[in-house]
């Protein structure tokens, strides 16, 4: 077996064949943690991840240290990566403290160790032509969009951003958006910043003005559903990054499934950690989701039959 590769920061990497398989488990090290409104912005030394990662992919972090009782990994969109910093490759995440795992992560300090598996999942597919694109972020869901904007603009795509949140402190990256995009619209539910209301209130105007054939979105499920609907009303495709509860993040536990149609229109319960988190919005069976619970549509492959299992 190959011994773990030591790096300049002391972080170690273990992987079978990294380049071919595109994912690493890394003993990372926090080098910076700072507040960003209601969130924490972490920069982690994770050698090798930057070279493999693309916008829309995520990282799964172990929490609580090696003897913790919180066994399950926590997943976060990759905000940005930098391949060759002073420290040898970093990864940035934006984390909202919620339960015990995210609390632990947001209490980390510079030089603390953190176990990272990344990059995971399917990235945002990019247009082949230099078409205008709309990027929609809800709350911390905007985290992966700035890096996406950069990649799109490199390909000549004009980028419009729409950022929404409950209140001003829950918006992430408004200043960065002005740099990363050609136009920015902000909404908050309480009107504390930008337009009062939801992103879906302002989206029709943005579609009309830009004529964008594609929208990329990341945020709460309800928002992704409305972005998909508004995009369809304007003849556009929505590529949405979903958030479903995940236990492993690497495709082995089957907890993160959701009903999605394939190319042939057949609905299957697919793992959002490997076949997602990015899906074409019009393929997701939104009607199966109700208030945090998702059922199995009756026409899904292998759905429970009456009187069966």
């Amino acid at each position: 077996m190959t011994p773990p590769t030591p790096t300049t920061s002391g972080a170690t990497v273990s992987a079978q064949t990294s380049a071919r398989d595109g994912v690493l488990r890394v003993d990372g090290e926090v080098i910076a943690i700072r507040r960003a409104g209601a969130y924490h912005h972490l920069t982690i030394v994770a050698p090798g991840v930057a070279e493999l990662a693309r916008p829309g992919q995520f990282a799964a972090l172990a929490v609580g240290g090696p003897t913790t009782g919180n066994l399950l990994r926590r997943s976060f969109s990759i905000h940005k990566v930098s391949p060759s910093g002073t420290y040898g490759g970093t990864l940035d995440l934006v984390i909202a403290a919620k339960g015990p795992g995210t609390q632990w992560l947001t209490e980390l300090r510079a030089h603390d160790a953190v176990d990272v598996v990344a990059p995971l999942g399917r990235a945002f597919p990019l247009p082949t032509e230099p078409v205008p694109c709309i990027l929609v972020g809800g709350g911390y869901g905007s985290a992966p969009l700035f890096w996406l904007a950069e990649v799109l603009r490199e390909r000549g795509c004009p980028v419009e951003m729409v950022l929404g949140a409950g209140s001003e402190d829950r918006l992430f990256g408004v200043v960065e958006a002005r740099r990363a995009a050609d136009g920015v619209t902000v909404t908050t539910d309480d009107g504390s910043a930008g337009h009062r209301g939801w992103v879906s209130d302002v989206l029709p105007e943005v579609f009309r003005r830009t004529g964008a054939p594609v929208a990329y979105a990341c945020g709460p499920m309800g928002m992704l559903q409305s972005v998909t609907r508004v995009a369809a009303e304007h003849g556009a495709v929505a590529q949405v990054a979903v958030e479903e509860a995940m236990a492993c993040g690497v495709g082995v536990c089957m907890t993160c499934v959701m009903p999605v149609r394939d190319k042939a229109g057949v609905t299957k319960m697919v793992r959002s950690c490997v076949e997602g988190p990015v899906f074409r919005g019009d393929r997701v069976r939104w009607e199966a989701f109700h208030d945090g619970v998702c059922g199995v549509p009756a026409d899904a492959v292998g759905a429970p039959q009456a009187g069966g299992h």
């Binding site: 536990c253 907890t255 993160c256 945090g292 619970v293 292998g302």
Partner: peptide
């Protein structure tokens, strides 16, 4: 088999 709905864990 599709398995059950979510949350599953």
């Amino acid at each position: 088999r599709s398995g059950r709905g979510t949350p599953r864990m």
